[in-house]
Amino acid sequence: MDDPLTIAEQWSEAGHQVALATVVDTWGSAPRPTGSHLVIDEGGRFEGSVSGGCVEGAVVAEAMDVIETGKPQMLEFGVADETAWEVGLSCGGTIRVYVEKVT
């Protein structure tokens, strides 16, 4: 299986609009280490992971904005979030995810 960075290049070369999400900070028990990637295209297709599946949906949604505006975003997820029930990390950790567009 190809890794997310290779897939990001392939999708981009194939003419897709692509966003790359990267775990840049973790506190407490986090399922994926810093440097983990999720790659997303304009159709919502994604590969890789930034958590154990808890917040990928939210990252994909944010990635749509990033693809549209071209502006990078810093996202934070944790159980202390107001949205914890929807996209919180059940493991109790907090993560920060940087989402950028491949241009």
Binding site: L5, T22, V23, V24, D25, T26, P33, T34, G35, R96, Y98
Partner: peptide
């Protein structure tokens, strides 16, 4: 081999994606 965000002296930060 560790990736992550670092704080710089001027208060800004940098993301290091280490491969």
């Amino acid at each position: 081999g560790k990736s992550g965000r670092i704080e710089l002296d001027d208060g800004s930060s940098a993301i290091l994606t280490v491969s």
